[in-house]
């Protein structure tokens, strides 16, 4: 079974970075850039409206992205802990960690990393 040259601490760092990103991205959503602050900042009704509209229209995308990144951060952190205890990281295990299908199999000794499913091209 192919092993990956991937340090579990990298995954842990990525998880932490994902969490930071989500909090910063959350700050760029419409809840934080309200109409009042845009009005006071812009000093021009047209610009204020454009600022509010911009953040409003992207808010659903940002929310979805925040949720996805948060979820991935959780799985990455869990995978990092699992890989720390395992001998090595397999591609199959990493893939399952990313997709969230089964993070317990990460170390290569897990039950679902069956033969023939992790071939190297």
């Amino acid at each position: 079974m192919p092993r990956l040259d991937l340090d579990p601490s990298e995954l842990a760092a990525l998880a932490a970075r994902l969490r930071d990103t989500t909090s910063l991205l959350g700050g760029a959503t419409a809840e934080h850039v309200g109409a009042r602050s845009a009005t006071s900042a812009a000093g021009d009704p047209v610009l204020a409206d454009a600022i509010t509209t911009l953040f409003n229209t992207w808010t659903p995308t940002h929310r979805t992205l925040v949720a996805t990144l948060e979820s991935l951060a959780g799985r990455m952190a869990q995978a990092a802990a699992t890989f720390e205890a395992a001998e090595s990281v397999t591609a199959q295990g990493l893939a399952r960690a990313i997709t969230g299908s089964d993070t317990e199999t990460a170390g290569g000794s897990g039950r679902s990393a069956g033969p023939g499913t992790d071939a190297v091209r």
């Binding site: 591609a91 199959q92 399952r96 990313i98 997709t99 499913t117 992790d118 071939a119």
Partner: peptide, 9 residues
């Protein structure tokens, strides 16, 4: 790497 799970990921 080739597998269904890897492709999905």
């Amino acid at each position: 790497h080739v597998s269904g799970a890897v492709d999905t990921a």
